[in-house]
């Protein structure tokens, strides 16, 4: 029943001469949440950023292997990176709304894609904010600066902004690491809701969070993907000793 969305084949990544990802291969499925876990510096964020080619922006980096999204290699020469990024929304560790109004934050992406009709934009703003479960809190102050929102609200605004361009995939880089437990809970509920429509890949440091929100989990360690499987299995009966040690908190 599950549909293959993203497939990596022997994906390696270098910062200069330093190998950051070593031949990672696994599949991510549509309408499922895949969590990437592992200690700091294990390559999980680097991996996430290869999926929408954000790493291209760092000079001196190099990619080997393939990433197929819907069967197309996104590192192919003919792929338009800008178009690719429109298909893939991204939410960052630190909430990063633009120093603009709430409304302008959401319309930024659509406007870049050439949508300028007021009615269409209004509709995108409402639906995106609703999808990110923040509409009720901000609908009366759309013209206020986004920087006036609380941390948790800002992060949900960023999720709404990522959804504004109608992506198919949502990448989340520790989206709740800087938030209080209540805001974190809201984001997690949201992820549950969003996976009905999107393919979600989430990097997290928080083991319980990975266990709560994800269907699949990949454990990274020192640039290698050590183990990958159903979240339930990874968290109860992992095959590898390293995975077990990390999950039970013996290192990391």
């Amino acid at each position: 029943m599950k549909e293959l969305k993203i497939e990596t084949r022997n994906l390696s990544f270098y910062y200069g001469n330093k190998l950051a990802l070593n031949s990672v291969s696994f599949n991510m499925y549509a309408n499922h949440v895949t969590a990437l876990i592992g200690p700091s510096g294990c390559g999980k964020s680097t991996f996430l950023r290869t999926l929408n080619r954000m790493n291209d922006l760092i000079p001196g980096t190099r990619v080997d292997g393939e990433i197929l999204i819907d069967g197309l290699n996104i590192y192919d020469k003919d792929i338009d990176v800008v178009n690719l990024r429109k298909k893939i929304g991204m939410v960052f560790q630190r909430s990063n709304p633009f120093a603009k109004s709430i409304y302008d934050n959401i319309t930024y992406g659509p406007k870049i894609n050439g949508i300028h009709k007021k009615e269409v934009l209004d509709e995108i703003v409402e639906s995106s904010l609703k999808k990110a479960a923040i509409w009720e809190e901000v609908k009366d102050r759309l013209d206020h600066s986004a920087l006036g929102l609380s941390g948790g609200q800002q992060q949900r605004l960023c999720i709404a902004r990522a959804l504004s361009v109608n992506p198919e995939i949502l990448l989340m880089d520790e989206p709740a690491s800087a938030l209080d437990p209540i805001s974190t809970g809201k984001i997690e509920e949201l992820i549950f809701e969003l996976k009905k429509t999107f393919t979600i890949i989430i990097v997290t440091h928080n083991m319980q969070q990975a266990a709560r929100v994800s269907d699949y989990t990949a454990f990274f360690y020192m640039g290698e993907m050590v183990e990958y499987g159903k979240t339930k299995k990874i968290f109860t009966t992992p095959d590898k000793k390293q995975t077990e040690e990390y999950i039970t908190g013996r290192f990391g």
Partner: peptide, 10 residues
């Protein structure tokens, strides 16, 4: 901020 913009396809 730049990342956010680029990730939106700018």
């Amino acid at each position: 901020m730049r990342d956010a913009s680029l990730a939106l396809g700018a």
